[in-house]
Design a protein around this nucleic acid. Structure first.
Lengths: 225, 225
DNA sequence: GCCTCTGTTCAGAGAGCGTTCAGATGGATA
DNA sequence: TATCCATCTGAACGCTCTCTGAACAGAGGC
């Protein structure tokens, strides 16, 4: 975890740097808004601790510019001022937390941990198979980065196959997982859906194992007849 | 956005509930730790405001159990105690923010906005989607810079979709996050609101994924049918 | 070559959705 | 308190798209 500290007071800066280093973080420091802004724009930080009263460029301005540039790292604002209206302004500029000087180092570390923990909770669950990708959260499929429009049942079939890549999935198993209990098995709807999927994602992904079922496989991968 | 308030003091509970409702949230309340824990376990909240000193089950215990159960909603801890050691304990139990009584309602709302925004993966206070913009602070929406007049529920629907851009949001999920506990789900109010929103913001922003739900998307973005 | 299994096409059925509207509800105003 | 107005709600209706099942064509195995 790499942290940026932007603080003009030399004593506090050193104190923060030491505390964070000791807590196991990699720490960079900046003494004014311009340096701080530059570092935040160019280096990949996991979180930033930002003083509001800074030389050259104000802390809120620095923060606003980062957010405009699409920087999403969590920012903890640090300031001597205690007025709530400024806290509100800080939050709405894109801050994630706020701490008023003087503060206990323990509390700072605790808030930082909370920020990092929350920021890391955003891994999107996506299944991949070659150039085929299914984002289960967004319910969206892409091939070579191009979005594919799937109907609800097509999506269900593909999703199940993606969860069972490289495995032969019998048609009965597909039926059981896609439909609820009572479904007339004397129908060829699965074949129809497989056909439509092939048409949309490309014919090579879904192989037919005659008499056994279907297998989703990476067509570019190591193939053995 | 649906919020759970767990607070034993009746006055404060009502005050919070009113303030949050007026700010456009759907609010459920609980007066003790056991009720609170149960609600948090069974209903899909976007955030929780949790008092530490609670009857029957302590706030920290409630929080720990939620986290053990895999609940990830952001939690803002609220307490009369000001000692930093308890703040640290609260954070490490899985809290995301901390506020000491007495507090300004404005600050609570600002911290809540920051939590919700961060929880949905957005860094900046104003949510954007193409030319559509929602200012969560002022509860105001604009398209191409022109303000749009939205009713309370229209705003809630749009706000929730903005927090979940590019994702298919099932209608049931929308209902759960826009209304509080008691609401008759066998109604087509969501369709009605979607229809009105499309009329106001333009028809291209909200896509219907038949059988799956609705998706808010940037119409000018790189879309491939 | 015959038989079985799979792929494709198509039209009807049905579900899901959009729209409209009337009544209910709640908040504001006098 | 009575009245008005905006908003919300739930039902009805019609439309569109998807699903389904059948029929037929094609591929593969024996």
């Amino acid at each position: 975890m790499r942290i940026l500290v932007v603080e003009d007071d030399a004593d506090l800066r050193r104190q923060l740097s030491e505390a964070l280093t000791q807590a196991g973080y990699a720490v960079d420091v900046a003494a004014d808004g311009e340096d701080g802004h530059f570092l935040g724009d160019t280096e990949p930080y996991d979180a930033v601790i930002l003083d509001l009263g800074l030389p050259i460029m104000d802390g809120v301005t620095v923060l606003e510019r980062w957010r405009e540039d699409g920087k999403v790292f969590p920012v903890l604002i640090l300031t001597a001022r205690d007025r709530w209206s400024e806290k509100v302004a800080g939050f709405d500029a894109g801050a994630d937390d706020y701490l008023t000087k003087p503060f206990y180092t323990e509390e700072l570390l605790a808030r930082l941990r909370a920020l990092l923990r929350r920021a890391s909770g955003h891994a999107s669950a996506s299944l991949e198979c070659g150039e085929l990708r299914v984002d289960t959260r967004a319910a969206r499929a892409t091939v070579n980065g191009k979005a594919i429009k799937l109907t609800a049942h097509e999506y269900r079939v593909l999703n199940y196959l993606m969860h069972n890549q490289e495995r032969v999935v019998p048609r009965t198993e597909l039926v059981e997982h896609i439909y609820d209990q009572d479904f007339d098995r004397d129908s060829n709807t699965i074949e129809v859906f497989i056909g439509r999927l092939r048409k949309k994602i490309g014919t090579d992904y879904i192989q037919t194992e005659r008499g056994l079922g279907y297998r989703l496989t990476d067509p570019t991968g190591s193939e053995t007849a």
